[in-house]
Amino acid sequence: MPELYRISWASRETRNSRRYHYDNTSRGGPPIYVVQRTVSGCGFIERDGVRSLTPQNTAMLFWHGDQSNYGYAEESNGPYVLDFMAITGPQCEAIFHKVNELSDSIMPMPKQSEPTRLFYELSRRFNEHTFQDPYHESMLVYELLISLLREATRIPAERDPITYAAEYIQRRYHQPITIDEVAQAAGVSREHLTRQLTRRLGQSPGKRLQELRMQAGKDLVCHTTAPIEAIGPHCGYLDPDAFARAFARRFKMSPGKYRQRYQENSGAAGSRS
């Protein structure tokens, strides 16, 4: 039999505390892809250092072995009630990666949407054992995946691209992103992004990105004992020398000298108190 799309499990769970937490990086075995829809309460998923909430009528998408973790959100007002479906299939990886790229792992799934309808039809048939045969199951699972992809492609068109770009920078400044990547993610040209973001924020995208990185760098220099050369990767600089040069341009002294000056001033203030 050729490889088909199959449901490994589909069920409802109710979670009441932050002890509900899974780290997908530690999950081995065959590839399993999960759609987890919030019925009530709120969950979260964190990927690449970005934590996103999944309130009612939204779904998180993840797979076993990916660089993400998820669980009960402390912001949840009451129990976190979720419906999940775990699936396998020949193109799950490609489709999930594309949906994740377009949606940042979070999909709107309101009650009347096509993905939600298919999700619950599949869940019902799986638990009632009413698929006509494996081919019927495979067809419906693939239809669900394509409906998620179709909805994901609408997200960039429906959001305000400049607001999205500003949020994208805010969430990912600690990663080595470029302004070209931000513009591409927002679905606009670099020139249009620069004009509009400068008009709204009074800063170009590059200036905004640099400001966030330098503030993060200054905090790490002043408030941690991390080696200077290890700080850059935590605020968007893969090259320690590039971080040191940018820091010196911004604060008129090297990171090491800035740390020394901060510690001397803090010590002097402490001795006077």
Rank of each mutant, 00 (worst) to 15 (best):
Y5G: 00
R6N: 13
I7S: 01
I7Q: 00
E13C: 09
T14D: 14
T14S: 05
S17W: 14
R18Y: 05
Y20G: 14
S26M: 11
S26T: 07
S26D: 03
P30C: 14
I32G: 02
Y33N: 07
V34S: 05
V35R: 04
V35Q: 11
V35F: 07
R37W: 08
G41E: 01
G43W: 07
G43F: 02
F44Y: 06
I45H: 09
E46L: 15
P55F: 01
T58S: 10
A59T: 07
M60V: 12
F62C: 15
H64C: 03
H64F: 11
A73C: 12
E74A: 13
E75L: 12
E75G: 11
N77L: 08
G78N: 10
D83V: 13
F84D: 04
M85A: 11
A86Q: 02
I87K: 14
T88S: 12
P90E: 09
K98H: 06
K98G: 03
K98N: 02
S103E: 01
S103L: 10
S103C: 05
M107Y: 02
E114F: 08
E114Q: 12
T116H: 06
L118F: 09
R125K: 06
F126A: 05
T130G: 04
P134V: 02
Y135S: 03
H136P: 09
H136G: 10
S138L: 15
I146Q: 06
I146W: 10
L148I: 05
L149Q: 09
E151S: 12
A157L: 09
E158P: 03
E158G: 13
D160F: 15
T163Q: 04
I169L: 10
R171Y: 11
Y173C: 15
H174S: 12
H174Y: 10
Q175Y: 00
Q175M: 04
P176I: 00
T178Y: 09
I179G: 10
I179W: 01
E181C: 02
V182A: 09
E191K: 06
L193C: 02
L193T: 13
R195M: 14
Q196G: 00
L197V: 08
T198I: 03
T198A: 07
L201P: 00
L201K: 08
L201N: 09
G202A: 12
P205A: 15
G206H: 02
G206T: 05
K207S: 06
R208P: 03
L209G: 01
Q210I: 01
Q215V: 03
K218T: 09
K218F: 06
L220C: 03
C222H: 09
T225Y: 10
E229K: 09
Y237P: 03
L238N: 13
F243H: 00
R245S: 07
A246V: 03
F247V: 08
F247K: 02
A248C: 08
R250N: 03
R250G: 04
S254F: 12
G256C: 03
Y258N: 01
R259M: 05
R259P: 03
R272F: 09
S273I: 08
S273T: 02
